[in-house]
Design a protein around this nucleic acid. Structure first.
Length: 424
RNA sequence: GGAGAGGUGGCCGAGUGGCCGAAGGCAGCUGCCUGCUAAGCAGUUGACCCUUAACGGGGUCCCUGGGUUCGAAUCCCAGCCUCUCCGCCA
């Protein structure tokens, strides 16, 4: 959420941001409602001041056993008027609040302007896409052949868009999770285990509600949602907190499943486990001092890259254009890894700086050196998402005979296993 | 799920329907004092909103939302959360 004062003072900047992000919040309407709101406040507060001073007089008279009936009768009228104004004010503030929730964050000046992903910029390429002298298989072909993946069984259990890993396949995922958690822990991230269900306030805090309601699974009758990413529970750990400056930055890492309805993506990436309704992810979250957030953003990107480099997977980093940037994001890098069997890049991490957008919604603040309250900046990045990482590990490391070479970094996590061959 | 108790400022904790933004303590800050000490003395210290060029002025906030009242931290109702006991349970 943006500060109404910021919108009041920078209406053109905000309108431009709305346009560049392909959103349609009506800034002029918001400013008009804000004007009405302030007028009502001025009126009602005059009456309240009157009531307060009159009440004092009544109290004095009562104490002195004087008659106060006339004042009381008069104040009864004033009280009714105040109630009317308050009701009106409340309606208008609810409306303003509702509209403000639909205003996206303003992109950082370094973000390229463009209406969709075609304007994204590749800012880094790492590793060389290898050449293979044999016909490559996709991960679902490899998975079936090696008996480490069972997509039909997943469909039987839950429908399309789910996956089952078995045997070494399941162990591979666990190895990746442990490898990532260990790596990030060593870099100073505090490991967390958090709830996979979150309430509406939490979902609003990080910006999933109201805009992305249809992308989430909701628990009927409970007012709870399945989390679409660990960012949600982890960031909200500090909702309504006042942190002391010397605690910043707070760095967290959490492994959770993520649940997504993928409502707008029907028919896209339907094969294999490229796009699924439930997947595991290791997520990094940082809560930082506003002055440091862009430095921390670069560092966070490196921390996510580190995982992929250790696994020797070729990747590229994309700086997202305004039109591809998320609603709450001010700046975002995507990491896309090469999947040899599919012959394309897959997004495995989004590393975003939200500046104070989420902090304002969550009311997460700190007291600075001058004792002033300030909103923190929040950042998060996948470190990284699993199914697509598994896809790349399988497809990139396949051999002519259909086995998979286990990346060296993972071998300690897989009992020294060097090669995945067909198992029972 | 049943029966109780409770939710007050950064923390602990008091609170009579009006003089309560809220005693007292701790922590913090500022002076003073002390040749050392987590010592002593005095003062000071909340958030948010409206208004003002500024000084300032005004309003709201004692879990949340309603209600009673001229007036609510204080009374009533509902909800949420925490704790204790019982039941159930991995």
């Amino acid at each position: 959420m943006l500060d109404i004062k910021f919108i009041r003072e920078n209406p053109e900047l905000v309108k431009q941001a709305v346009a560049n992000k392909n959103e349609k919040a009506d800034i002029d309407q918001i400013l008009e409602i804000d004007r009405q709101r302030r007028n009502i406040i001025a009126d009602v507060e005059k009456l309240k001041a009157l009531r307060n001073s009159a009440s004092e007089q009544i109290a004095v008279k009562k104490r002195n056993k004087q008659d106060a009936e006339a004042d009381i009768a008069q104040m009864k009228e004033v009280g009714e008027k105040i109630a009317q104004f308050d009701a009106e004010l409340r309606t208008i503030e609810d409306e303003l609040e509702r509209l403000l929730k639909w205003v996206p964050n303003v992109p950082h000046p370094s973000v390229p302007v463009g209406k969709d992903e075609k304007s994204n910029i590749t800012v880094k390429e790492w590793g060389r896409v290898p050449q293979y002298s044999f016909n490559l298989m996709t991960h679902w072909e490899l998975g079936e052949k090696l008996n480490i993946m069972d997509l039909p069984a997943a469909a039987k259990v839950a429908g399309s868009g789910f996956y089952v890993l078995r045997g070494i396949g399941a162990k591979l995922q666990r190895a990746l999770v442990n490898f990532m958690l260990d790596t990030h822990s060593k870099d100073g991230f505090t490991e967390l285990h958090v709830p996979y269900l979150a309430n509406a306030e939490t979902m609003t805090g990080t910006g999933q509600l109201p805009k992305l309601a249809e992308d989430m699974y909701k628990i009927q009758d409970e007012n709870l949602y399945l989390i679409p990413t660990a960012e949600v529970p982890v960031s909200n750990l500090h909702r309504d907190d006042i942190l002391s400056e010397d605690r910043l930055p707070l760095c967290y890492v959490a492994h959770t499943p993520c649940f997504r309805r993928e409502a707008g993506a029907a028919g896209k990436d339907t094969r294999g486990m490229i796009r699924v309704h439930q997947f595991d992810k290791v997520e990094l979250v940082k809560i930082v001092h506003p002055d440091k957030s862009y430095d921390e953003h670069e560092t966070l990107l490196q921390q996510a890259e580190k995982i992929i480099q250790a696994l020797k997977i070729p990747y590229r980093v994309r700086l997202l254009a305004t039109g591809d940037l998320s609603f709450a994001g001010a700046k975002c890098y995507d990491i896309e890894i090469w999947a040899a069997g599919l012959g394309k890049y897959l997004e495995v991490s989004s590393v975003s700086n939200f500046e104070s957008f989420q902090a304002r919604r969550m009311n997460t603040r700190f007291r600075d050196k001058d004792k002033k309250m300030q909103f923190v900046h929040t950042l998060n990045g996948s470190g990284v998402a699993l199914p697509r990482l598994i896809i790349a590990v399988l497809e990139n490391n396949q051999t002519e005979y259909g086995a998979i070479i286990v990346p060296e970094a993972l071998r300690p996590y897989m009992g020294g296993l060097t090669e995945i061959i067909k198992s029972e």
